[in-house]
Design a protein around this nucleic acid. Sequence first.
DNA 1: TATTATTCAGACAAAAGACTCCTAAATAAA
DNA 2: TTTATTTAGGAGTCTTTTGTCTGAATAATA
Lengths: 151, 151
Amino acid sequence: MLLSKSCVYGLRASLYLASKESDSYIPIRKMSDTLEISFHFLTKILQQMTSAGILESYKGPNGGVRLTRSGRDISLMEVVSAIDGDKMLTECALGLPGCGVMKPCPIHEKWAVTRDGIREMLESTTLTELSTKGKEFDLRLTAEGGFLDLE
Amino acid sequence: MLLSKSCVYGLRASLYLASKESDSYIPIRKMSDTLEISFHFLTKILQQMTSAGILESYKGPNGGVRLTRSGRDISLMEVVSAIDGDKMLTECALGLPGCGVMKPCPIHEKWAVTRDGIREMLESTTLTELSTKGKEFDLRLTAEGGFLDLE
DNA sequence: TATTATTCAGACAAAAGACTCCTAAATAAA
DNA sequence: TTTATTTAGGAGTCTTTTGTCTGAATAATA
């Protein structure tokens, strides 16, 4: 798969948070229940996002996590590279270490074009853009349910 | 990564075979040595390609594998789907089981566009196209060497 | 026929990714 | 000040991917 499971979970959680317009902290337990993701596993992923500066957290009762900025200013790319890094968008498609402009692999150029398409998509799409559409059309965010099922 | 390691190895081996214009069988051992891929691991991958009809094999002395058709008629897509399947090009980017036209996920449409770019690239590129360029410009096919180092 | 070169097949091992569980630290509320 | 809630972080398990090893089947050749 293009994105790791961790990354997908991080994206879904980000969209959940972006769909909440209040700036109160959301407990991870609530998110993991709603999104049907293992609590402990999700916790770790959100920690990565916190240390990457996308989220901020607060301990204790009424604690949880929230976006540090408006979802309008956070691209999918930010979330992806916080969790999966940017190997996918920098590495040679054939995994050859020395591959580069000097001595490229045969699919170097074609892959560069394709990859730019992926990057462009991730960079130009914001959390708010997707969460807004998500709420408008009740799009899917879990196996069963959509944005309108979010609590 | 987009492609599994197995898939990348399969692609590199395919390009190696396409670069040989003779229709004699090439021993896997020779390929694994040249391409610096574990012999046994490569063997398994090539077996997958054989049962997918991309390669044919011959046992015993002077045996090995070769392409069943001209590399001109084999697209990268064929090799990729023989090894990795086509999950990448069919599955929801968020991994949501029910995601589809009826109730898509938020990135469904954008991902469909991006994905078509990937598919188009893989389908429109043939082994011969790449191996020809590979030989012409001595492109990279191993960590260290290029097409002109192939024996 | 015996030997050698080769693919085929499957069991096994190691590494990475995905996921669980437990304890500690922070903090709000009772 | 105690208790409940919540994140932080580490250690451990399970699964998948990647890679290794051993032996059997097949075919050429001496």
